[in-house]
Simulated scan of single mutants.
Amino acid sequence: MTPFTVLGASGYIGSRLVAHLQGQGHTVLAPARDNAGLFSQPLGHVLYCVGLTADFRSRPFDTVEAHVGLLAEVLRRAQFDSLLYLSSTRVYMGAASTDEEAPLSVVPGDPSYLYNLSKLAGESLCHASGRSGVRVARLSNVVGPGMDAQAGNLVADLVHQAQQGAMLLRSHPESAKDYIHIDDVVHWLPRIALGGRSVTYNVASGRQTTHGQWLQWLSEHYASSFEVQEGAPLQRFAPISVARLQAEFGVMARPVWGDGRWRWPVQTQTAGRYP
């Protein structure tokens, strides 16, 4: 059995990691952030999942504390064999490339960039810490059963609407992002933590999924109608490079839906419409 510590175990990714690792027979600690024992006992392999998502704009100080402040204390004081810091592919906003070594751009005056800046500060701290076994995983948009509709996630919001019988998409249906299923994430992250040869990894599918595809699929599963808000903006995000992940670990993301991965009954489709 391999000892792991999951920080941020109450969150969507962290809680699924705990369940997955325990199911594999590993010993898992899931201490609270203010647990005094965090710095007085060996932590084994640390998976740092602490972070804010949708509410980072209204909680700037909490965002920095989660992404940088606590991380600094763990890197400085904790006893661990390795540490994997969960960052985000959002850091590629405005970049010319999405490979892990690409130069990145930031706009400090834009409140939306606080998330990116704090994640990059956390990444930089990992690189500068001088601790061995410290790595970074830049996660794409993670989806799967049990998402919180209040988390600001497009798919979680659409799922919630579909459960009510009608969906309204407020972005153009050809808008597209890279989505990765939680099942792949919880399988890949421990492998990166234990055996990654590089320092930074994109954890993504390498495929673009359009918002229109989500509408169609969810309508089939929930017999939900749907429509698109007139004049909805088109949002384009660059495809995420997964060459490093595939070269080192030979993994390939499965489709974000299908094969019973969402454990929802398929129902008769109800037609939707685009304006």
Rank of each mutant, 00 (worst) to 15 (best):
V106M: 11
S58Y: 04
T63G: 07
V74N: 00
V50C: 04
H67V: 07
R77S: 12
L47P: 01
A66P: 07
A96G: 03
S97G: 01
D55M: 04
R90P: 00
L75N: 02
V74I: 14
L84H: 09
T98L: 09
G69H: 14
E65G: 06
A96M: 01
D62I: 11
G51S: 04
V107R: 13
V46I: 15
V107K: 12
L84V: 08
L70F: 13
S105I: 06
P60T: 08
Y85A: 04
C49T: 09
L47F: 02
H67Y: 11
S97W: 10
P108K: 09
S58L: 10
D99W: 12
G94W: 09
V107G: 00
G69C: 08
L52Y: 09
Q79L: 06
G51H: 06
L86R: 01
D62E: 15
T63C: 15
D110Q: 04
V50Q: 06
S97V: 00
R76T: 12
R59V: 05
D99F: 11
Y85F: 15
G51I: 08
Y48H: 02
L75Y: 07
V64T: 08
S88G: 01
Y85S: 08
T89C: 14
P108Q: 10
R90H: 12
L47M: 10
A95Y: 07
F56N: 09
Q79R: 12
S82G: 03
R57K: 15
R90C: 05
V107S: 11
H45E: 04
V64G: 00
Y85L: 08
F80Q: 02
G69P: 10
R76E: 15
T63F: 02
R76N: 13
V91P: 00
V106L: 13
L43A: 00
T63S: 11
Y85N: 08
E100I: 10
L83M: 11
Y92H: 07
V50D: 04
V46M: 03
L84D: 02
F56I: 03
L83D: 03
C49Q: 04
A66I: 04
D55R: 14
H45A: 00
